[in-house]
Amino acid sequence: MTNDTFKLQAEARTKFGKGAARQIRRDHKIPAVMYGHGAEPVHITLPGHDAMMALKHANALLTIVLDGDEQLALAKDVQRDPIKPVIEHVDLVIVRKGEKVTVDVSVHVEGEAAPETVVSLDHSSVQVEAEATNIPESITVSVEGLEAGTQILAGALELPEGSTLVTDPEALVVNVTQQISQEALDAELAEAEAEAGVEHEEPEAAEGEAAEAAEGEAAEGDAEKSEDA
């Protein structure tokens, strides 16, 4: 699956600083800067809702319309509010049709491995080189029926046509291991606690000590009453 193109109507930005940026966001717009190919950086604002919807797609190819001119761009950096679902700023890099770019593409796992196995995704994304107008949104890996001990390296991924792997082909992406039983987990925990010097009181001993303590407190109470009398 390759990335779609999203057209965004931009406006030139002449006011800068935190105060200006806050005002832009209050107007439901997003401050952004667009640069690349030797051009001077252009400060713009993007329509908030449309930009947020477009940037939900990984490596979305954007058509920025500014003063009637159209420019293809990719989001190089998206700054998001750590609490609210708000985009604070976007860095856009200008691209050309036919131009090759290097991007991170997410890896998605599908299917069910063999019973009693655990599937680990060691690399959630890989770097690929692709045409700016034909960037894959994701790479899918099937683990259907794979047995424990199976490893899928980056070089074994099936890339969409026109994409070239940049990540080390020997990098481990998917690892299928044997599921650990509860007994084995308990044994490992006990071994780790023994090495750390952790000791657990026997339940009966603990109950006996508690009973002795209670009896001692009761005896002290009776002695105090006798003295008062």
Rank of each mutant, 00 (worst) to 15 (best):
Q9Y: 05
A10D: 02
A10E: 02
R13D: 10
R13C: 11
R13Y: 10
K15H: 14
K15V: 14
F16K: 11
G17R: 09
K18W: 11
K18G: 14
G19E: 14
G19C: 13
A20M: 13
A21H: 10
R22E: 06
R22K: 10
Q23D: 11
Q23N: 12
Q23C: 05
Q23A: 15
Q23Y: 07
I24C: 06
R25Q: 13
R26K: 12
R26N: 11
D27C: 10
H28D: 11
K29I: 08
I30R: 01
I30H: 04
P31E: 13
V33F: 00
V33W: 01
M34L: 05
M34K: 00
M34C: 03
Y35E: 06
H37W: 07
H37S: 07
H37P: 07
H37M: 07
H37Q: 08
A39D: 12
A39R: 14
A39C: 08
A39V: 11
V42A: 06
V42Q: 07
H43P: 07
I44P: 06
I44K: 05
T45G: 01
L46H: 05
G48Q: 05
H49F: 14
H49C: 09
H49D: 13
D50Y: 09
A51N: 03
M52I: 12
M52K: 15
A54K: 01
A54H: 01
L55M: 09
K56A: 08
K56E: 10
H57M: 15
H57K: 15
N59H: 05
N59K: 06
A60Y: 01
L61T: 03
L61S: 00
L62M: 13
L62K: 00
L66E: 03
G68A: 04
G68S: 08
G68L: 06
G68P: 06
E70I: 01
E70K: 07
E70T: 09
Q71W: 00
Q71R: 06
L72I: 04
L72E: 04
L72P: 04
L72K: 01
A73S: 04
L74Q: 06
K76H: 04
K76T: 03
V78E: 03
Q79F: 08
R80W: 01
R80D: 02
P82H: 10
P82M: 10
I83E: 10
I83N: 11
